[in-house]
Design a protein around this nucleic acid. Structure first.
Lengths: 229, 229
DNA sequence: AATCTGAATTTTGAATTCATTATTAAGTAA
DNA sequence: TTACTTAATAATGAATTCAAAATTCAGATT
């Protein structure tokens, strides 16, 4: 027995897991743009690692759906298409609805208080027409709901979907009307949580997301005008 | 332009992807049992590959949640606990419900016919008290619904969850009463599909799965009697 | 000039090698 | 005998090396 207390062990995440996170960020942030080929060696040099951990990371990201691997032809950043969004949004809706139900069943008063605080802060940014600030607290609210749902598997699945559409979500600017609608939906969300009405919250969250989808869809259709030949 | 028609290109899947599938099967089939350490080198020798592709496969399976990686301590087959099931089943329920809704919206007459055929075959095995045969067609029905939903992302997410609980699902034997109940639920499923009532089908599928969960839970609780200290 | 062929280069796939960390075993002291 | 220390062994993490496939580029032919 030594004299040290319960000291936190030195966490040294393996190189490949750090790389995975790093690359995921690079994709989400658009450093690696959609459709672009990922040159292994160049990336390795830039990040100062060898190809072994790099390739491990690429495999994982491909499994997550962020990359596609073409045998003997390397990795490519998966471009988000309208079809992808049509697959992903209903799924996210189902997961958010479930999160809402579980959150209502499990949420503590402290967590609810925190949620209300985040909501109030978000409203401040809304009134100041500060879109980035609004987005930040918006995201935090949804994270808190997911946290209250207390289901790590659900959370990580949701996260992996969210990553895939994040770019599109941020790039698609909301109209004033849409923004107001979103805010109203958020007030409904808080109300439902207050009442611990899981069914209701689930329905609202699903609708909330589908409205977001409509916005993103419009934006995407404007971006890539009809590939139909 | 050459004289050859649209010949299918020779597909040569990379070693690591074959390995990933192979290892996944080994875990599902119980060749690698839960909680067991995965000795890299021994596995490599047994399968005749080097450590590089093996490690890539392990990373992917860890990302899927089938393995846990302990830094510098290798991989371990993730043991299914009651807590895991309590996380996974509601999730699967939400995904199946969504699949049901989408299937009702998209299913073709041909697909519906095939589903009814599978249902009839399943019933034959039920009446013959042939549990493996029943299971086989049961699984096929759920696959056909997922297929009719026509959402690859949903399908692959569902699959990765199903893999994690497959062992438990098969090992947990149904009582005669539970079996009869399951069969009745399946008739409701076909009815709902026939009516293209997505809401109803979603509800039934969710309930169906939660009943399955109750069976599995009983079995698991019998297996690992109270770890509470 | 344009297209096709084939060699040179580059890039990816996989095995091997080296370094570091964990585990085991042996030896010593209490 | 038991517990602790330290050396030996084995396993994992990561870089390097080798092999195979794809791409590029130069030259030849029409």
């Amino acid at each position: 027995m030594n004299a040290l207390g319960d000291v936190a062990s030195i966490k040294r995440p393996s190189l490949h897991s750090e790389l995975t996170d790093r690359l995921r960020d690079m994709i989400v942030e658009g450093v690696l743009t959609a459709g672009e080929k990922v040159p292994e060696r160049a990336l390795c040099e830039k990040l100062g690692v060898s190809r072994t951990p790099m390739r491990e990371a690429l495999k994982v990201l491909a499994a997550e759906g962020l990359l596609t691997l073409e045998p003997n032809r390397g990795a490519r950043v998966r471009a988000i298409t309208l079809e992808d969004l049509e697959e992903v949004f209903p799924l996210m809706g189902a997961l958010e609805a479930l999160a809402g139900e579980l959150a209502c069943a499990n949420i503590s008063n402290a967590q609810l208080t925190e949620l209300k605080k985040a909501h109030a802060q978000m409203m401040t940014h809304y009134k100041a027409s500060d879109m980035p600030g609004y987005f930040h607290h918006n995201q935090r609210i949804h994270e808190l709901i997911m946290q209250a749902a207390d289901n790590p598997t659900l959370s990580s699945m949701y996260q992996s979907l969210a990553v895939r559409v994040r770019q599109a979500r941020y790039l698609a600017n909301m109209s004033a009307e849409r923004w107001q609608q979103a805010v109203e939906e958020h007030e409904e969300i808080i109300d439902a949580l207050d009442k611990r009405d899981g069914q209701l919250l689930g329905t609202i969250l699903k609708r909330h997301l589908m409205n977001k989808f409509a916005t993103v869809r419009q934006w995407l259709e404007a971006q890539e005008p009809s590939d139909a030949g």
